[in-house]
């Protein structure tokens, strides 16, 4: 391999690491947070339910890019508290992704809950299971299974959305590809970047397909 090629590919692989790291942090945090939001929406407490719904509405109703820019560049400009809100760019970006994706996952889980027949709750009740046992043993496993294809879909979107880091100047895969294109006057880095994204989404898709087969009961 030519040194030129290595000089091009190495930074991109470094960038891919950032991309993957962001993806992993975002997904493992936003899924549980999303689930907590779903519980919030379903809560009997009107205020909790309203807060959760409003949160989801705001997060889904505004561009992720706007939210990222707000956290990275907007928060520090707030009066009084602003100076304490200057976050590391990567941390800020992670936060943005987690907060945004949690709202999407919350909607996915809510859909999963709606798909569960009320007979499941009734059968649990007559067998004597309490609310907690019913939720954890009967409802959640079915909800996750029903939601799996949608979760898979959302995860692939998340991989591609990591490219938004470009806009807040966190050096990731796309950033290094763009740098290489400008430096070497060649389009090749874009192709490599595309291939790396494809490789990540392929692994991810295969993982979810495996999960779907593993938990196939319907």
């Amino acid at each position: 391999m030519s040194t030129e090629f290595i000089n091009m590919i190495m930074p991109m692989l470094e960038g891919a690491k950032v991309t993957i790291l962001l993806f992993l942090i975002a997904i493992v945090s936003s899924i549980p947070l999303g689930f907590i939001l779903t519980l919030g929406v379903k809560s009997n407490n009107k205020i909790v339910s309203w807060l959760a719904q409003t949160y989801i509405y705001l997060m889904r109703g505004t561009p992720l890019l706007l939210q990222l820019l707000f956290i990275c560049f907007g928060l520090p400009l707030l009066p009084v508290v602003g100076e304490y809100l200057v976050l590391d760019r990567f941390v800020a970006a992670c936060l943005g992704f987690i907060l945004n994706y949690a709202a999407y996952f919350a909607e996915i889980f809510r859909g999963g809950l709606l798909a569960i027949d009320k007979g499941q709750y009734e059968a649990s009740h007559v067998l004597g299971l309490n609310k907690w046992q019913t939720t954890t043993r009967i409802i959640l496993p079915q909800m996750f299974r029903i939601a799996l294809p949608a979760i898979s879909n959302e995860s692939v979107t998340l991989v591609k959305d990591t490219a938004l880091l470009y806009a807040v100047a966190v050096p990731e895969l796309l950033h290094f590809a763009q740098t290489a294109v400008n430096r070497d006057f060649t389009v090749v880095p874009f192709f490599f970047a595309g291939m790396i994204y494809l490789a990540i989404t392929l692994v991810l898709t295969m993982f979810f397909k495996w999960l779907e087969r593993r938990f196939k009961f319907v």
Binding site: G119, Q120, A123, V126, I138, P141, Q142, R145, F217
Partner: peptide, 11 residues
């Protein structure tokens, strides 16, 4: 109780 639609746990 036994229901018309069984209500077995599918998972």
């Amino acid at each position: 109780m036994v229901f018309q639609h069984f209500n077995l746990f599918p998972h």
